[in-house]
C-alpha cells in the first residue's frame, strides 16, 4: 500500500488524523490571536496615517510636491499645475499692478469660460429649428429651473466679453505692447477680436425673435453688396452673381434668413467659431510667454536711446 512508505503511517490512521487537527487548531488559534492584536494594531497605525492625508499614496499621486510655505513649493505650485503653468513661477514686481494691466485679457478669458459653461447648459434646452427655437426660449424663461438667470448670464457675459476685448486692446495699444517682439501676437489678438464679435453676432439670431431676426437681416444684407461676390455689389452681376448663388446665400444657406440660417448660426456659434477661437487663444497665451511675458511695466526709454539696441551683443559692445 502507499501507506507503507509514509513515516506517519506507523502511528495508525487515527494518530495521523489527530496530528492534522491539532495543526489546524493551532493555526486557527494563531490567526484568531492575530485578529485580536495585529489587525487592530495595523488598523490603528493606518488610521493614524490617514490623519495626515498628504502622506497617502492617492494624495501624493495627485499632488507632486509638498505644500510647506517655501519659495520652492510656491514655484512648484504654479509649474506643476496644468492650468496654472501658463504663468511663469515669478514675475516682475510691478507686473501685478492693476493700474498697468487692467486685467482685461484675463477677465475676457474668464468670461469665455462662463459663456462656454452657461452655453452648454442652454444647449440642453434648445432646438435650432424654426418650430422649436422661440418656444424653447420661452420654456427656458418660464419653466426651466434657473433658466431665466442662465439665459441672462449668457447674454450679459457676451456683452461684457465684447467690452473686455476692446478695453484689452486699448490697453495693449496705449502701452505700446504690440511693438517688437510682440507684433505677431497683436495679430492673433485682432483675429480674436473678430471672432469674439462673430460669436456674439451668430448668437444674436438664436432666440429667433424680431430683434435677432432683423439684426441679422440688416447684418447679412451687407454681404449682398460684397464686391465681386455679392449680387448687388460692384461687378457682382457681371460675374453671374444672383441672390441664389452669392456670398450671402452661402452664409444663410438660403436667400432669406430662415431655417437654414438658424441652423448655420447655431453650428457656427456652438461649434465652429468656439473651436477656432480656442485654438487662437492657445496660440495667444503661449506667445505671451514666448515673447517674454507681459510687456511691462518696463523702464522708460529716453529719446537718445531710441535707435540703440537695449540688450544683446550690440548693446554690450557699445
Amino acid at each position: 500500500m502507499a501507506d507503507e512508505n509514509n513515516p506517519n503511517s506507523t502511528n495508525g490512521k487515527n494518530g495521523g488524523k489527530v496530528g492534522l487537527l491539532e495543526k489546524v487548531k493551532a493555526g486557527v488559534k494563531e490567526h484568531i490571536q492575530g485578529l485580536k492584536t495585529d489587525i487592530p494594531a495595523k488598523a490603528k497605525e493606518q488610521i493614524e496615517g490617514l490623519k495626515d492625508p498628504t502622506k497617502t499614496q492617492v494624495y501624493t499621486s495627485i499632488f507632486r510636491h509638498k505644500h510647506d510655505d517655501t519659495p520652492r513649493n510656491r514655484a512648484l505650485g504654479v509649474l506643476s499645475n496644468v492650468f496654472l503653468h501658463l504663468h511663469p513661477a515669478k514675475i516682475n514686481r510691478d507686473a501685478v499692478r492693476y493700474s498697468y494691466t487692467w486685467g482685461m485679457g484675463g477677465m475676457t478669458f474668464y468670461l469665455f469660460i462662463v459663456l462656454t459653461y452657461t452655453g452648454v447648459l442652454l444647449m440642453f434646452y434648445y432646438h435650432p429649428s424654426k418650430v422649436q427655437a422661440f418656444r424653447d426660449v420661452l420654456y427656458l424663461e418660464h419653466d426651466v429651473p434657473f433658466g431665466k438667470i442662465l439665459r441672462n448670464m449668457h447674454r450679459w457675459a457676451a456683452h461684457l466679453m465684447v467690452i473686455g476685448v476692446w478695453l484689452h486692446m486699448f490697453r495693449v495699444f496705449l502701452t505700446g505692447s504690440y511693438k517688437k517682439p510682440r507684433e505677431f501676437n497683436w495679430n492673433i489678438g485682432v483675429l480674436l477680436l473678430v471672432f469674439t464679435l462673430l460669436l456674439s453676432f451668430t448668437g444674436y439670431l438664436l432666440p429667433d425673435d424680431q430683434l435677432g431676426f432683423w439684426a441679422v437681416t440688416v447684418g447679412t444684407n451687407m454681404a449682398r453688396a460684397t464686391p465681386l461676390l455679392g449680387h448687388e455689389g460692384p461687378f457682382g452681376s457681371m460675374l453671374g452673381m444672383t441672390p441664389y448663388n452669392d456670398v450671402r446665400f452661402g452664409l444663410l444657406g438660403g436667400s432669406i434668413v430662415d431655417a437654414n440660417a438658424l441652423l448655420r448660426s447655431y453650428i457656427w456659434h456652438c461649434i465652429g467659431i468656439p473651436i477656432v477661437a480656442s485654438i487662437l487663444m492657445i496660440v495667444h497665451f503661449w506667445r505671451v510667454r514666448k515673447d517674454g511675458g507681459i510687456s511691462g511695466p518696463a523702464p522708460v526709454m529716453l529719446e537718445a536711446e531710441a535707435d540703440k539696441p537695449r540688450r544683446g551683443p550690440k548693446a554690450a559692445g557699445e
Binding site: 426660449v137 438667470i149 441672462n152 450679459w156 461684457l160 453676432f201 425673435d209 424680431q210 435677432g212 432683423w214
Partner: peptide, 30 residues
C-alpha cells in the same frame, strides 16, 4: 454678472416675422 442677470432680463421680442419690419431695425450694438 450675477447681479446684472438677476436685475435685468435679456431682451426677447415677438417671434421672428419677416413680414413685419422692425423700425428702426438695428444691428447688434457693437
Amino acid at each position: 454678472l450675477m447681479v446684472w442677470s438677476i436685475t435685468l432680463n435679456a431682451p426677447l421680442e415677438e417671434p421672428a416675422n419677416p413680414n413685419l419690419t422692425m423700425n428702426p431695425a438695428k444691428a447688434p450694438w457693437y
